[in-house]
Design a protein around this nucleic acid. Structure first.
Lengths: 164, 164
DNA sequence: TCCGTGCCGTCAACCATGTTGTCGATCGTA
DNA sequence: TACGATCGACAACATGGTTGACGGCACGGA
């Protein structure tokens, strides 16, 4: 680029490409993560489950709490937990200190998925660093941190497109 | 990792931050687009509709064609078209040359939404360029183009998270 | 000319994820 | 003790996806 004579406008990319590029990047990472997880003993796992397990965390949480972290209603969180439990990634236990609450905790299978996810993400980032250069990747992250408002840095990716 | 005295590792961001940053960026752009569109006479419009209208295009298309472009079944495309029509953004017309086909075309309202979307995306990109610097934004786009496989540059964002 | 093959749109059933609204049980507190 | 807030659950529904089936239509070869 930069072949035109105009000094200030050097054929910038059209604005609509930016969201497409960001989404393609996100999607590429998530797709490759789940392809790798499927290979490592976690086939049924889908993107929404990963976000939900992150919301559960290694400490466990109640359904209402998970709903707040994911930005969805407690009912929706309860349904997601049901599926997590059906898949063997979590289990429900009564809270001895409060009979209303039910603690959701990850099973060892769930912890394993979380641990492997972090490892795969590190590998994928290293791959991108090798392709684009470590400096350019760091710049990309720094640029995104600069333009993205911190409150949008949340876990409620799943279902965001469908719900408005 | 990376907090030791090793000279080559300068506390890189953990790998899991990368998808979060990319998604936060994508989401920020889309959220602001739809907030702006709502202000400009397109309230009911949601992200999925935008992708669907892009797949229809100004030339029009059949439901099967739209499904192929979005990477979903023709039945799913048909339902999405139904909602687009109910919202007044598209209409169905018989194809005089082939009685099997029904041409989906955008209404003037739909064309207006597409035109405004492009304008808003350009404004948002200019905003990011002002915040992060035009050069850094161009670098970000170039880096993403380098690491993202071209085949993932598709329109099937809506519903992707839910379907695997 | 007629018939097989294949695409088009549609209907039906179902799944996954969200939403609101309601409700009984329980906790904490005025 | 009684009230109010919260928790988990249930029901009904919207949205957006899937597969399977099916009748209508186009087109090309026996």
């Amino acid at each position: 680029m930069g072949k035109g004579p105009a000094p200030e406008a050097v054929a910038d990319a059209p604005g609509y490409e930016l969201p497409l590029l960001l989404f393609a990047g996100f999607r590429t990472l998530i797709d490759r993560l789940h392809a790798e997880l499927a290979r490592q003993g976690h086939p049924g796992l889908r993107p929404a489950h990963g976000f939900a397990m992150q919301a559960v965390g290694v400490r466990g949480a109640t359904a209402s709490e998970i709903g707040r972290r994911l930005g969805v209603s407690k009912q929706a969180a309860g349904k997601t937990v049901d599926r997590l439990i059906a898949l063997g990634y979590a289990h429900r236990a009564d809270d001895p200190a409060d009979a209303r609450r039910k603690l959701i905790r990850l099973t060892p299978h769930g912890i394993d998925a979380l641990r492997r996810s972090a490892a795969v993400f590190d590998e994928l980032r290293a791959e991108w660093a090798a392709t684009a250069g470590a400096d350019r990747l760091r710049d990309l992250e720094a640029t995104l941190r600069a333009v993205v408002p911190p409150h949008s840095f949340r876990l409620d990716a799943a279902g965001w497109l469908g719900g408005s």
